[in-house]
């Protein structure tokens, strides 16, 4: 078959690198497989480790349009899938009534009311109906109630949406689908079964260094190396919240702005608040960095 997006795992990795996303073997393998098996990927892991960015970067690399459904508590069908434009519908009914001389065909009117003209497409339906290649990102799925997950099941397994009034709409092309989760609650088995599972953890030191080198303008190899090492060191301490990749990047950018070539303990301590968010964590890390390991 020629309609695969990627030739092999290595090329996924290379192409992602071209759009400045540094994937490891695991990430590349799962993206490759998702295309082959036409299955959505459920990406889980700590905050700021590149889950959302992965979907964006895959869209960029495949030249697809990114359609994003940001989840929140209380998200419903009307915001996720589609909604009938009830105002327009009511107006139309009103108009019919006003001009009703007994000739109105109510069945016909019903069909008219539930036609494309009154349909408002939301991200999920938009992804299904798209003519051009799209990547669908369902971000932070763990924020919706477990009951709401049910809305997604049909799309995720069959790439179709059933609208009672219009029938079943099938995808014109199978989009790559990413769901992200911070794991604040257990997702339903039904959802997990439909997805490939990808856990993105904090990157290994070498990869984090590469990410820093790629994303932080004007940083020297030496500084990037130090940054990655210190971050690794800090992540080994037991903290309330370990630094994420975005925090590593913020820190590296700050160091560059400050014109620092090589970090000493003093400078590290003074800038720790960029890397860590809790005061107790900052104090703990500052203390640790001041002493030699073990």
């Amino acid at each position: 078959m020629s309609d695969h997006r990627f030739g092999d795992v290595a090329s996924v990795r290379d192409e992602l690198k071209e759009v400045e996303y540094l994937a490891d073997e695991g990430i590349a393998s799962v993206v490759f497989l998702a295309d082959r098996l036409q299955k959505p990927i459920l990406v889980e892991g700590p905050a700021g480790t590149g889950k959302t960015q992965l979907a964006k970067s895959v869209a960029e690399m495949t030249g697809a349009r990114l359609i994003r459904l940001q989840c929140y508590e209380g998200l419903d069908e009307a915001k996720a899938l589609y909604e009938w434009n009830y105002k327009k519908q009511l107006l139309r009914i009103q108009a019919e009534k006003a001009s009703d001389d007994g000739s109105t065909d109510w069945d016909q009117l019903h069909d008219d009311l539930f036609s494309d003209e009154f349909l408002m497409t939301r991200p999920l339906l938009e992804a299904i109906r798209a003519e051009d290649p799209v990547v669908l990102l369902i971000d932070e799925i763990d924020r919706v109630e477990v009951e709401t997950e049910a809305l997604l099941l049909e799309i995720l397994s069959d790439y179709q949406v059933s609208i009672p009034e219009l029938g079943t709409m099938e995808a014109r092309q199978i989009p790559l689908v990413f769901l992200t989760s911070n794991n604040t609650r257990e997702l339903s088995e039904a959802l997990k079964r439909r997805c490939l599972f990808l856990h993105i953890d904090y990157p290994q030191m070498d990869r984090e260094k590469e990410i820093v080198l790629t994303k932080v303008e004007g940083i020297s190899e030496n500084l990037a190396d130090q940054v990655a090492r210190i971050v690794r060191s800090i992540r080994q301490i037991e903290l309330k919240k370990a630094p994420s990749v975005s925090e590593t990047l913020d820190w590296a950018r700050t160091l560059v702005l400050l014109g620092i070539e090589s970090i000493d303990a003093e400078q590290a301590r003074e800038t720790l608040h960029i890397l860590l968010k809790y005061q107790t964590d900052i104090e703990k890390a500052a203390k640790e960095l001041a002493v030699e390991a073990r």
């Binding site: 795992v9 073997e25 590349a28 393998s29 490759f32 794991n183 997990k192 997805c195 599972f197 990808l198």
Partner: peptide, 23 residues
Amino acid sequence: KHIPIEDRSAFKYALGATLVKNA
């Protein structure tokens, strides 16, 4: 079927992604 067994680590991640849904 899509990943050669010789590519040990890709093979492992592919199996992991389908079989393990809890980190």
